[in-house]
Write a protein that binds this DNA or RNA. Structure first.
Length: 481
DNA sequence: CGTCTTTGACCTGCGC
DNA sequence: GCGCAGGTCAAAGACG
């Protein structure tokens, strides 16, 4: 069993934030992006003295998180509230190059250890995870698939997905099918295979070409299409112009939205050339202290190792939010992710609401509520907050990450994310799942990003080779690019 | 000088 | 068909 030494150094976070560094203003190399918020001493100690341990430093932009040191879980993301002042494209910074390099190495090692751990246990049940944790340490690059938990690959056909769904899921309502059908046209277009953004304008363009009367194909892909169009929105209070979610973003447009005096900013992921992921940032018209960040699309590049944990978490979260009780027993019981999600679902379903206002399925993480009333005064770790609130409070420090890692591995191996089994009636297009989560806004931002990636990652999986051919992904996110 | 932001123009979908 | 709104592009300027 992995142990997760506690290093929830809010002070460390604070320290980094206050550390002046020229490198902070440099756009980091992707591989060196630091998503962990950990103190140098802690990381080194963990790796050199306890190589078998995974040390994941929680991210936290707040300064009053000393109590979190008592917690044993870490989101693994260095998610700071961006405060660039000019909506500059950003990535988590606040660290010197040396620290970033060291931490990157550490992260790599941690991920490698975790993955190897999962290699030995991925078929075991979660209960069997309380075994040895001493695993060889072999630094290796994190495959991009960790976040690409989208639809099964071509080998895992849509039929399989459908059969794995509950019988109810096969009953699609006409509206969702219509909407999904529209989106489907995009999917079938090669240029959109990597485009999770789904330009509506292209939908109609491809309608004719794909209206071949193949109802089955449409049905099978309807849910996929719906999911691919899914967006993840985060509502969080932040004075910063944009939440830092661990990715680099470049602003490509700004528009005044009707009914909102605050402009809406459009960002595009620049961590990799041609990454179709985009996000919109806008302040709430009613309460301008609330920052609404909407993510759409799936990354076509490796995300920082720290996001491994995010992937696991978001897998569970998305599974919880999207698949709900319609998950098949097979998926729900055998998939650790779903098990995690199910557990959370049972306890947090009260936080979820459904609306039909969104044009596409939207997961809204409402983080505007205070977390203190739910989690108590000693836990500001967003992940643990989420877990605790979702019924995982009884997990020990190592239990949760282990489960998450297990879920992650499962998803990696199976290319089968429970969210992918979202029955169409479970989350029709136009529905919005709203989960009020008291958590760190930055965590939520990353969470949303990962959820979006997961949900929309199906596009990459549709092409069986897409995962290993990132370079083939063209810059098709734009209409005229 | 290269990169990024700004911002007006353009494109598209949708409702009337 | 027209107008509106959302989304995107790309030239120009700013910045390091």
């Amino acid at each position: 069993m992995f142990r997760f030494p506690v290093s929830l150094g809010g002070q460390g976070d604070n320290l980094k934030q206050t550390q002046p560094s020229d490198e902070q203003h440099h756009r980091p190399i992707m591989d060196e992006v630091d998503f962990f918020r950990s103190e140098k001493r802690d990381d080194q100690n963990v790796i050199t003295e306890e190589t078998h341990r995974l040390h994941v430093k929680r991210e936290n932009s707040r300064v009053d998180d000393d109590d979190d040191r008592s917690m044993g879980i870490n989101t693994g993301l260095n998610l700071l509230t961006a405060n660039t002042g000019s909506d500059e494209s950003l990535v988590d910074d606040g660290l010197s190059v040396d620290m970033e390099e060291k931490r990157t190495k550490i992260e790599m090692q941690l991920v490698a250890v975790m993955r190897q751990e999962e290699d030995h246990h991925h078929l075991a049940t979660i209960e069997s995870k309380d075994k040895d944790t001493n695993r060889h340490e072999a630094p290796e690059m994190v495959p991009r698939q960790f976040i690409d938990l989208g639809l099964p690959s071509a080998e895992v056909s849509s039929d399989e997905r459908i059969t794995s769904r509950s019988p109810q899921s096969l009953l699609e309502d006409s509206s969702s099918r219509q909407r999904a059908k529209r989106v489907l046209e995009i999917e079938e277009s090669p240029e959109n295979e990597s485009n999770g953004w789904g330009n509506p304008s292209k939908v109609s363009k491809h309608n004719a070409s794909s209206s071949n009367g193949n109802g089955n194909a449409i049905d099978q892909s309807a849910a996929e299409a719906t999911m691919r169009k899914a967006r993840v929105s985060v509502r969080a209070r932040s004075e910063a112009p944009m939440l830092s979610d661990g990715c680099q973003w470049r602003k490509y447009g700004q528009k005044m939205a009707k009914g909102n005096p605050c402009p809406r900013a459009y960002y595009r992921c620049t961590m990799a050339v041609g990454c179709p992921v985009r996000k919109q940032v806008q302040r709430c018209a009613d309460d301008r202290s609330i920052l609404i960040t909407t993510y759409e699309g799936n990354h076509n590049h490796p995300l920082p190792p720290a996001a491994m944990y995010m992937a696991s978490t978001t897998t569970a979260a998305a599974s919880m939010l999207l698949s709900g009780s319609t998950m098949s027993n097979q998926d729900g019981l055998m998939n650790p992710t779903n098990l995690f999600a199910r557990t959370m679902l049972t306890c947090s379903s009260s936080m979820a609401t459904i609306s039909a206002s969104a044009p596409f399925p939207t997961i809204t993480l409402d983080l505007t509520e205070s977390a203190s009333d739910v989690n108590g005064p000693t836990n500001n770790n967003p992940l643990m907050q989420f877990a605790q609130r979702s019924g995982f409070a009884e997990l020990n420090q190592s239990g949760l990450p282990q489960m998450m890692g297990q879920a992650l591995y499962y998803n990696q191996q199976q290319s089968k994310f429970s969210g992918l089994h979202i029955p169409s009636q479970s989350l029709n297009a136009g529905e919005s799942v709203n989960a009020a989560m008291p958590a760190n806004p930055n965590f939520a931002a990353a969470l949303a990003a990962a959820i979006t990636s997961i949900i929309n990652g199906s596009s990459n999986h549709q092409n069986g080779s897409s995962n290993s051919s990132n370079n083939n992904v063209t810059t098709s996110s734009g209409d005229r690019q």
